[in-house]
């Protein structure tokens, strides 16, 4: 499998014109729920595909961590998007987004328990059975822990990845956020993760708010996160890194600056 490579950026309709103007770009990610596989793709994505840019569908509402089985219609949609984009892989989160008939509107953490591992593994397997391409799983950022964790983060993730054979989508900003809000040493966590399974890496900005670090995707990437990227890439360099920006978009020069900083920190070629 040839997965994504180099420095990429999350494709959003709001910045489609900016993304289209990045000469060295080789991969982007698109929110899977924003694409309708039955309808023509957005012009911007068609153009990128025409240039040979990989487009990775990134699901945010599958709720793989939900106690109940994943909704087959959502899985079918994700598979359809992957096929429509001729994607090398798809990604989703180790999280749940709804329960008891209510939408959380957000990715929520799971208890790090055997029961939760079993629930995630069952849902990931159901999903993998329908997907035409490999699935990468992304650990999320959370502000709080469940009261009855049986495993630590590294063991929790490794067990899920081992049981499913899924790839890892490592979000460095989430690692930073979790360490900042829930304690722990980010570098030590990175050391214990199965980094050889990293398909690509997420990098995003955030901000301090009310005593917590919020992974907002609407603020600049903090220096501490770039330091973690540098540390990660000094060891086993991941094949690809992706900048996620979801709102409060800055002037083009600033966005280019963030992509350049990511290229410099990772040692990948500059895409701007």
């Amino acid at each position: 499998m040839t997965g994504p490579s180099g420095v990429g950026i999350g494709w959003r309709p709001e910045i489609a014109g900016f993304v289209a103007g990045l000469p060295g770009l080789r991969f982007v990610e698109v929110v899977a729920e924003a694409v309708a596989p039955a309808r023509p793709l957005p012009d911007g994505l068609t153009e990128l595909r025409g240039r040979g840019v990989d487009v990775v569908p990134h699901g945010v509402r599958l709720s793989l961590g939900g106690a109940e089985p994943v909704d087959p219609a959502r899985v079918a949609h994700l598979a359809g998007v992957a096929a429509a984009l001729d994607a090398p892989l798809v990604s989703e989160h180790i999280a749940f987004v709804r329960a008891g008939g209510l939408e959380a509107g957000h990715l929520l953490p799971l208890p790090r328990s055997r029961e939760a591992v079993a629930a995630v593994v069952a849902n990931v397997r159901r999903t993998q059975a329908e997907l035409p391409v490999p699935l990468a799983l992304e650990p999320i950022a959370a502000l709080f822990d469940w009261p009855d964790d049986e495993l630590d983060e590294a063991d929790f993730l490794t067990e899920i990845l081992d049981a499913t054979g899924a790839l890892l989508l490592l979000d460095v900003a989430n690692v930073h956020a979790n360490a900042r809000n829930r304690g722990g040493d980010p570098a030590a966590l990175l050391d214990r993760l199965p980094l050889e399974r990293v398909a690509y890496v997420h990098v995003a900005g955030g901000a301090e708010h009310g005593g917590f670090y919020h992974d907002t995707h609407t603020d600049p990437v903090p220096a501490a996160v770039l330091d973690l990227v540098r540390e990660l890439c000094a060891g086993r360099r991941p094949p690809a890194l992706l900048l996620e920006r979801d709102g409060h978009y800055p002037p083009a020069a600033e966005l280019r600056g963030e992509l350049d900083a990511l290229a410099a920190a990772s040692g990948h070629p500059v895409v701007t």
Binding site: A67, R98, A99, G100, L102, A104, A119, P147
Partner: peptide
């Protein structure tokens, strides 16, 4: 797990009580 996830979501978005231990 299902019941506890539902309790947590209700606490977060529907004004439900904080589940024990959090």
């Amino acid at each position: 797990l299902a019941a506890r996830q539902a309790e947590l979501v209700a606490a977060l978005v529907a004004g439900g009580p904080l589940p024990p231990g959090f």
